[in-house]
Design a binder for these strands. Structure first.
Lengths: 181, 181
DNA sequence: ATAAAATACTACCGACCGGTCGGGTGTAAA
DNA sequence: TTTACACCCGACCGGTCGGTAGTATTTTAT
């Protein structure tokens, strides 16, 4: 991927994270990458297409080079949870959540991309838990991800990161809904 | 409160919930209540002021007529959790969460209103847990609310309400992060 | 009945939105 | 040297945004 293209996607991610789908403007995005708005349309057909690019990049970064869960599933699990939580803590929010609430049926491809993003993430998490012999790994993954996402609410409203920290701890110990290790 | 005023606030809530702060337009709001846009400005100074009205109404509805927790804290708890979850399940989303992500520093009063909304809600939850002798009631309330909010992610992305149902069950049993009843 | 206050309307404002157009410019292959 | 392509730009499109001015209509209080 060309570096300019990657930079556009990364800046788009920041804008989506901060201002949501509606609130992010192509004008702002162009300014952040040092281009004019019209130039963006040589690389992307429209604003909606940015969504799937942003989420694909994010998924890549989140999963790339994870420890092989077949060798040490607990290490893979801690690493994955740690990556997610670190992003939430430094960026204060989750792009995916903002987009999930922000895209509607008028942008169906973006909506599909968001759904897929969270499904893939949950499946990867469930894969690891399954290797660890955790019962109902799909539900457990969904619940833990929900807890992490929900914790970002407190970061954005009051700056309190403790709920996220507690969510990470409990996810590490897997003491969620009586599924303790 | 005059009925028209209340209707405006209720419709504004639906718009904020569905489209977020930026995505909700005064034009749409006016159409929903059978008025012209300019007429809204005889009741509200600006769009931002709607946020605190919406959240005040929501807090009122959520807390009004709750069973007295000093008589039966478990009943009060179940009722409160049930109300929150019912709204999430029928409306698919939480207005507060959408606004929390949607308002920024350019609308400081709205931002403050959102912070206050969640703080008050958490405090009320914590009050009940305190009466029940639950350890660290503030943290417990924050964590449980986070879990409920996070569960709405799955409702909006895939329509799956099971994470929310599990969150309600675990909240009812208070088996959160090892704080089991 | 009348004055005052609330509420409603039409019409408009400047700013910004996503997106398109035609015309450049630099590079690299033929 | 020509051709081709990728990229970038200023200017512009129709449309929507939050908000306002001025005026008409309805409600309320005296």
């Amino acid at each position: 991927m060309k570096t300019t293209l990657r930079k556009i996607v990364m800046e788009a991610r920041e804008l989506f994270r901060e201002h949501g789908y509606d609130g992010a403007s192509m004008q702002d995005l162009a300014a952040r990458v040092g281009l004019k708005k019209a130039s963006l349309y040589t690389r992307f057909p429209n604003k909606e297409a940015l969504v799937s690019e942003v989420l694909t990049l994010t998924l890549e970064e989140t999963l790339k080079g994870l420890p092989d869960p077949r060798e040490d599933w607990q290490l893979a699990w801690q690493t994955l949870i740690g990556r997610i939580a670190k992003t939430f803590e430094t960026r204060k929010r989750c792009v995916g959540l903002h987009l999930a609430y922000g895209v509607t049926s008028v942008t169906p491809e973006a909506q599909a991309a968001v759904s897929q993003f969270f499904n893939v993430l949950r499946e990867r998490m469930a894969d690891i838990l399954r290797l660890g012999g955790i019962p109902q790994p799909d539900s457990a993954a969904a619940d833990i991800l929900a807890q992490l996402e929900g914790a970002t609410l407190w970061i954005t409203t009051s700056g309190d990161v403790e709920p996220l920290r507690r969510a990470v701890k409990s996810a590490s110990r897997l003491d969620v809904f009586g599924r303790k290790i």
